[in-house]
Lab assay of single mutants.
Amino acid sequence: TSEVNPQMLQDLQAAGFDEDMVIQALQKTNNRSIEAAIEFISKM
């Protein structure tokens, strides 16, 4: 599995997102940004 940015993971979990969804979103967006991860999650 590709690495996820631990700070982004922590921030998104703090915002109430599920850890598994956050990890998948960060991997799919290559840790580009929190906004990109949220957009990915919203389309899941």
Score class of each variant (00 low, 15 high):
Ile38Pro: 09
Met44Leu: 11
Thr29Phe: 00
Gln10Trp: 06
Ser33Lys: 03
Leu26Gly: 05
Glu19Ala: 11
Glu19Met: 07
Asp20Pro: 09
Lys43Arg: 13
Phe17Val: 03
Lys28Ala: 15
Asp20His: 07
Phe17His: 10
Thr1Asn: 15
Ala36Lys: 08
Ala36Gln: 06
Lys43Glu: 15
Met8Gln: 03
Gly16Glu: 02
Asp18Val: 02
Pro6Met: 13
Ser33Pro: 02
Leu9Arg: 11
Ile34Thr: 14
Leu26Thr: 01
Asn5Cys: 07
Lys28Ile: 04
Gln7Asp: 10
Glu19Tyr: 07
Leu9Trp: 01
Leu12Gly: 02
Asn5Met: 00
Met21Thr: 15
Ile38Thr: 12
Ala25Asp: 03
Met8Trp: 08
Asn31Thr: 02
Ala36Phe: 01
Met44Pro: 09
Thr29Ala: 02
Glu39Trp: 01
Gln7Ser: 09
Pro6Trp: 08
Leu9Gln: 10
Gln24Trp: 11
Ala15Asp: 05
Val4Met: 04
Glu35Ser: 10
Ala25Pro: 04
Lys43Val: 10
Ile34Phe: 08
Ile38Gln: 13
Lys28Glu: 14
Glu35Cys: 03
Ala15Ser: 06
Phe17Cys: 03
Leu26His: 11
Val4Asp: 05
Ala14Arg: 11
Met21Cys: 10
Gln24Thr: 13
Gly16Trp: 00
Leu9Asn: 04
Met44Arg: 12
Lys43Gly: 12
Leu9Phe: 11
Asn5His: 08
Glu3Ala: 07
Glu39Gly: 08
Met21Ser: 12
Ala37Leu: 01
Leu26Val: 02
Lys43Pro: 05
Arg32Gln: 15
Lys28Ser: 12
Asp11Tyr: 11
Ala14Asn: 10
Ala37Lys: 00
Ile23Leu: 08
Ala14Cys: 06
Lys43Asn: 12
Asn31Arg: 00
Ser2Tyr: 07
Val22Cys: 15
Lys43Ala: 14
Phe17Asp: 08
Phe17Met: 05
Ile34Pro: 12
Val4Cys: 06
Val22His: 02
Gln27Lys: 15
Asp20Cys: 08
Ala36Gly: 08
Asp18Cys: 08
Ile41Val: 04
Ala15Gln: 14
Phe40Met: 12
Pro6His: 13
Glu19His: 13
Asp20Ile: 05
Glu19Ser: 12
Gly16Ile: 00
Lys43Ile: 04
Met21Glu: 14
Asp20Thr: 12
Gln13Cys: 14
Asn31Gln: 02
Asp20Met: 09
Asp20Trp: 06
Phe17Gly: 04
Lys28Pro: 01
Ser33Gly: 10
Leu12Val: 02
Gln13Ser: 10
Met8Val: 03
Asp18Lys: 10
Phe40Leu: 09
Glu3Thr: 10
Ile38Val: 13
Glu19Phe: 06
Ala36Pro: 05
Ile34Gln: 11
Asp20Val: 07
Leu26Arg: 03
Ile34Leu: 13
Asn30Gln: 12
Ile38Ser: 10
Asn5Asp: 13
Ser33Leu: 00
Asp18Phe: 02
Leu9Ile: 05
Ala36Asp: 11
Lys28Tyr: 13
Asp11His: 08
Ala15Ile: 07
Ala14Leu: 08
Arg32Tyr: 07
Gln10Ile: 06
Asn30Thr: 03
Asn5Gly: 01
Asn30Val: 00
Leu12Gln: 02
Ser2Leu: 07
Asn5Glu: 04
Glu3Ile: 03
Ala25Asn: 02
Val22Tyr: 01
Glu35Ala: 09
Glu3Ser: 05
Ile34Asp: 07
Val22Asp: 03
Asp18Gln: 11
Asn30Ile: 05
Gln10Asn: 11
Asp20Asn: 12
Met8Glu: 05
Ile41Glu: 09
Ile23Lys: 14
Pro6Tyr: 10
Thr1Cys: 11
Asp11Leu: 09
Asn5Phe: 00
Val4Leu: 05
Asn31Glu: 07
Ser2Pro: 15
Met21Gln: 15
Leu26Ile: 06
Met44Gly: 12
Gln10Leu: 09
Ala36Ser: 11
Glu19Lys: 15
Ser2His: 09
Asn5Thr: 02
Leu12Arg: 01
Ala37Thr: 05
Glu39Cys: 05
Ala15Val: 04
Pro6Asp: 13
Gln27Trp: 02
Val22Met: 01
Thr29Gln: 02
Ala36Arg: 04
Met44Trp: 07
Ala25Lys: 01
Thr1Gly: 14
Ala25Tyr: 02
Val22Leu: 03
Ser33Trp: 00
Ala25His: 00
Glu19Asp: 09
Phe40Ala: 13
Met21Val: 15
Ala36Cys: 09
Val4Ile: 09
Ile38Arg: 13
Gln13Leu: 15
Glu35Pro: 09
Val22Trp: 01
